[in-house]
Design a protein around this nucleic acid. Structure first.
Ligand SMILES: NC(=O)c1ccc[n+]([C@@H]2O[C@H](COP(=O)([O-])OP(=O)(O)OC[C@H]3O[C@@H](n4cnc5c(N)ncnc54)[C@H](O)[C@@H]3O)[C@@H](O)[C@H]2O)c1
Ligand SMILES: NC(=O)c1ccc[n+]([C@@H]2O[C@H](COP(=O)([O-])OP(=O)(O)OC[C@H]3O[C@@H](n4cnc5c(N)ncnc54)[C@H](O)[C@@H]3O)[C@@H](O)[C@H]2O)c1
Lengths: 210, 210
DNA sequence: CGTGTTCTGTGAAAAGTTTCACAAAATGGC
DNA sequence: GCCATTTTGTGAAACTTTTCACAGAACACG
């Protein structure tokens, strides 16, 4: 889209989200400047990588005086696109869906979960952490009415692909998928999978080595 | 540790977990061979990458006849270390903790969640999806008695670092952390973070571009 | 039995990411 | 005002991962 976007390495972008969080906490303590090595400590990486990443988002520090916290916050939020909030829905208000609703309601400023959906009558019309769960039949209507562009999938594995197709047909262009399947979707849809199994098996593999 | 391990690229290892899942489903349909392009379709990547990955785990296909499913399953499980199960605990039986307990109880064969812990009296001594929640005071004892090596952290952000220190002191060497903080721990402990915020912001960033 | 087709295996190139190492800038102490 | 010290910014090297492209193996079919 804009020029800056294209140039930011994917890995840097991922870390940027972490940096935002770190700076928000850091600023809350009244601190106004920070050195690359201090920030690296907080982020669990190296000063060198910090400086590179900061360059990518247009943050300039000054020698000896480090980086200005507020300027960094502004730059990072601008790079991440904080001027625009994205309307989001969550489908599948089971164990995981409920947990995520409770989390998002107060944690992710840039992404707004406007509605949730389920098939089970006993879930429908309940409000979980501020988000109403609707009948899945109303999904397409609400997506259109509220200009929803992102979807979070927390339905059982077997239902995920069919649901994803429906989301895409309704205009969704970004999906966070918690079901353990590879979704097969058109190229214009951006998908990320949250694979808890993968992470825990990775830990099982690498832990106890060093 | 052993020779094979060192040589497997990290990204390949991550995908291996996915391949195991795919093959389990594929084999359940009675299929016994698969081509790299078929498997790539199921995994959402390229035939070329599939073949590379398969090489890393010692799977040899044969020209024209593709790969033997059973052999691949055996090899992948052996690479991932399925001969040995790891004892695991989960700390913080809140919304997310409960969701994860219900998931792990039947999904991840190689990792066994043997106990959960919480501070709140009303959580303690309840059994969630087959796993008992104990008083956090008993944690160190149970870790030792059951030879627990991995820990899953689902406590509030503020509690995470102190808890992680306690886990490490008790002998835990691998941690899956859901709290949105960078844990500062000794080098011998392998940590992975599950960052939902990061994923959703990444989607917000990249979606609607292509 | 030979020919065309469809696969795998893999060197080598390309692309992406991290780390190194050091010049240049800024600061504080003297 | 000058020197020692600390910190940034960045080319270039090192490393990692993905993709390309094609030789060679295996099979089907005539
Ligand atoms: N629980 C976890 O920690 C965890 C972790 C990783 C992945 N997952 C995956 O997340 C998904 C949900 O897990 P869960 O534990 O919350 O399961 P769950 O059974 O508690 O919840 C699933 C919910 O989806 C609803 N649902 C089913 N079909 C639907 C449809 N077509 N449209 C709308 N809603 C529908 C159900 O009514 C239910 O409320 C599963 O795919 C699971 O594999 C869960
Ligand atoms: N809910 C989500 O989808 C989600 C997503 C990403 C990250 N997280 C993170 O996961 C963590 C848990 O989230 P949640 O929504 O389940 O919160 P929650 O408040 O529902 O659960 C936290 C649980 O931890 C327990 N606890 C607190 N201090 C403890 C201690 N010292 N020892 C043992 N137990 C303790 C509490 O009693 C409670 O049961 C938080 O750090 C949150 O930021 C949650």
């Amino acid at each position: 889209m804009n020029k800056t976007r294209k140039e930011i390495p994917v890995n840097t972008l991922e870390r940027m989200v972490k940096y935002r969080r770190i700076l928000d906490n850091y600023a809350a303590d009244g601190k106004t400047i920070i050195y690359s090595h201090e920030m690296a400590k907080l982020a669990g990486n190296t000063p060198s990588q910090m400086r590179r990443d900061l360059m990518s988002c247009g943050c300039a520090g000054s020698t000896r005086a480090g980086y200005n916290v507020q300027e960094m916050q502004t730059n990072i939020k601008s790079v991440l696109g904080y001027s625009e909030t994205k309307q989001t829905i969550l489908v599948g208000v089971g164990n995981l869906g409920k947990a995520i609703l409770s989390y998002f309601s107060f944690r992710v400023p840039r992404v707004q979960v406007v509605a949730a959906f389920d098939v089970m009558p006993h879930r429908i019309d309940r409000v979980i952490s501020g988000t109403r769960c609707h009948d899945i039949k109303e999904m397409e209507t609400i997506i259109k009415e509220q200009s929803v562009t992102l979807g979070i999938i927390t339905v059982p594995r077997e239902e995920a692909q069919a649901l994803a197709d429906r989301l895409v047909a309704a205009g969704i262009v970004g999906i966070l998928n918690f079901a353990p399947v590879t979704l097969d979707l058109p190229d214009h849809v951006y998908v990320e999978n949250m694979d808890i199994t993968m992470k825990i098996e990775k830990i099982a593999f690498y832990s106890g080595e060093k």
